[in-house]
Simulated assay, not measured.
Amino acid sequence: MSTHTVLYDPEERIEAELPLDRAPHEALITAVLAWTNPALEPRDYAQIALQLTGHARAVSADVQRHAQLLPADNGRRALAEVVLREADRRLSVPLEGTARCVQDRARLVQALYQRLDRLTQPAPASAP
């Protein structure tokens, strides 16, 4: 007997209303990017990379939702679309059980958060 409930949410409204669990992922990113010569097993690297990949997809979806709220000719939207295309490309690369792979995923999540922050902050006032 399954204890899981499957939700049908084609408009992704539930996900859009749930806040990202940012603090633990930022702590993980900080730790991963501080590695100089880690000695983990390949399966441990793979597990961390999976965690970061899942979070990258969630942040990417959040960036996309915020970008779509902006006019098509808005510069912040254009930059977000560039970052999203790069994120899609990088997320399509198969995971490896290596420190380099984990650090690449950490940098990706970091870049997505930077773009999200720029989208959620008020736009700078334009010069007269």
Rank of each mutant, 00 (worst) to 15 (best):
M1Q: 12
S2H: 07
T3W: 05
T3H: 13
T5E: 14
L7I: 13
L7F: 11
Y8A: 08
P10Q: 01
E11M: 07
E12Q: 15
R13T: 10
E17D: 12
L18T: 14
L18W: 06
P19S: 11
L20C: 07
D21H: 14
A23E: 14
A23Y: 05
P24M: 04
P24A: 10
E26I: 09
A27L: 10
L28S: 09
L28W: 11
I29M: 05
T30M: 02
V32S: 02
V32C: 07
L33D: 00
L33W: 05
L33P: 09
W35V: 00
T36H: 12
T36L: 06
N37T: 03
N37G: 13
P38Q: 08
P38E: 01
P38H: 07
A39M: 08
E41N: 12
P42Q: 13
R43H: 07
A46I: 07
A46V: 03
Q47H: 06
A49S: 15
L50D: 07
L50G: 15
Q51M: 05
T53Y: 00
T53M: 03
G54I: 09
G54R: 10
H55V: 04
R57D: 12
R57N: 14
V59R: 04
S60M: 08
A61Q: 00
A61K: 08
V63P: 03
R65P: 02
H66E: 11
A67K: 06
A67N: 07
L69V: 08
L69W: 08
P71C: 05
D73I: 08
N74I: 01
N74P: 09
G75Y: 02
R77P: 12
R77Y: 12
A78R: 15
V82D: 02
V83W: 02
R85E: 03
R85L: 05
R85I: 00
E86R: 04
E86W: 00
E86H: 03
A87D: 02
R89C: 01
L91P: 09
L91S: 04
V93F: 09
E96M: 05
G97L: 10
A99G: 15
R100L: 09
C101D: 14
C101F: 01
C101V: 06
V102Q: 08
D104H: 09
R105T: 02
R105F: 01
R105N: 11
R107T: 13
R107G: 01
R107H: 09
L108Q: 14
L108W: 07
V109L: 15
V109T: 06
V109A: 06
Q110I: 06
Y113V: 10
Y113W: 10
R115Q: 15
R115N: 13
D117V: 06
R118A: 12
R118H: 10
Q121R: 13
P124I: 09
P124K: 11
P124S: 08
A125F: 08
